[in-house]
Computed example of a mutant assay.
Amino acid sequence: MPQDRAAVRAFFAERAAGWDAKFAADPPRYAAAIARLGPLDGAFALDIGCGTGRALPLLRAAVGPGGTVLGMDLTPEMVALAATRPGALVTVADCTRLPLPEATADLLLAAGLLGHLPEPATALREFARVTRPGGRLALYLPLSRTALAARHGRDPATDPQAEPVLRPLLAATGWRPVSHHDTDDHYLAVAERT
């Protein structure tokens, strides 16, 4: 899996058109993960690395009419597809330089993002910068983290989302780990902004 920005953008650009069809079984998994995040009514939620926007309608429903959802992705082709979702608010952005002021977001969802980053700590620091104290970060995968790491040639034990690696990484970048679910069919780690 590519990790530099240009390679990541090119990788996802050529796959954007078929992305939703390839992962058609994912929406119920996303819905279950978002439900596990607890009440989000009125929240300002960010979907960082939103891809084609599969989670945007689910987040929109979770935050209700008083909330706001903003999707961001590095790949313009993905953002163009995400923009077709009803009520979608999306922009092209680099997750290490988010176009937001400090302490504005209540929730950041990053699904399948951390494994694409050469320096996850840089992104986690930036996520912390734009999140209000007490706000939450949800790192999510709709499949096994271990299987995904192995598929991409990474050692599952040293993968940035492996709990022994992630806990100190979160602590060093402004987050307090809250929960960590790493199962054979999904991955969800939640942290709170300190």
Rank of each mutant, 00 (worst) to 15 (best):
A83G: 09
L74N: 01
L143N: 05
G53S: 10
F44G: 01
L100F: 13
V69N: 06
C95S: 02
T146K: 07
L109K: 11
P142E: 05
L124P: 01
L113V: 14
A128N: 11
F44H: 01
G49Y: 00
T84L: 13
L46V: 15
G87D: 07
L81D: 12
G115C: 05
G67E: 03
T84W: 02
G134Q: 13
T68S: 11
V69D: 02
A83L: 03
Y140E: 00
L137H: 00
A123Q: 11
P86W: 11
D41Y: 02
R60E: 11
R54L: 12
E119Y: 00
E126C: 12
P86S: 05
P118M: 02
D73V: 14
A93L: 06
T104Q: 12
L40W: 06
G49L: 00
P118V: 11
P142H: 08
P101H: 07
G135N: 14
A88T: 14
V79G: 08
L139W: 00
T131E: 05
A61W: 02
A61V: 11
E77A: 15
C50I: 09
A61G: 06
C50Y: 02
L40E: 07
G135I: 15
V63R: 09
E77P: 06
L46E: 04
P101V: 15
R60V: 10
L139F: 00
A110Y: 00
V69Y: 04
P101S: 10
E77Y: 08
T131F: 03
L98T: 14
R132K: 15
F127T: 08
P86M: 09
T75I: 05
T146M: 01
A103N: 03
V90K: 01
H116A: 02
L89R: 15
A61S: 10
C50K: 05
A138Q: 08
D106E: 11
G135K: 14
L100Q: 09
L108Y: 00
E119D: 14
M72N: 02
D47K: 12
P133K: 04
P76G: 11
G64A: 14
L40V: 11
L141F: 08
R145Q: 14
A111N: 04
I48G: 01
L109P: 05
A82R: 05
R145P: 09
A93M: 06
G112A: 08
V92Q: 09
T68N: 04
L100C: 09
A83W: 02
L59V: 10
L59N: 04
G42K: 09
A110R: 01
T52M: 04
G115Q: 05
G64D: 12
A138H: 06
P57H: 12
T68H: 12
L100I: 13
A111R: 05
A61D: 12
A62R: 09
L59R: 07
R132S: 11
L59E: 04
A82W: 03
D41N: 14
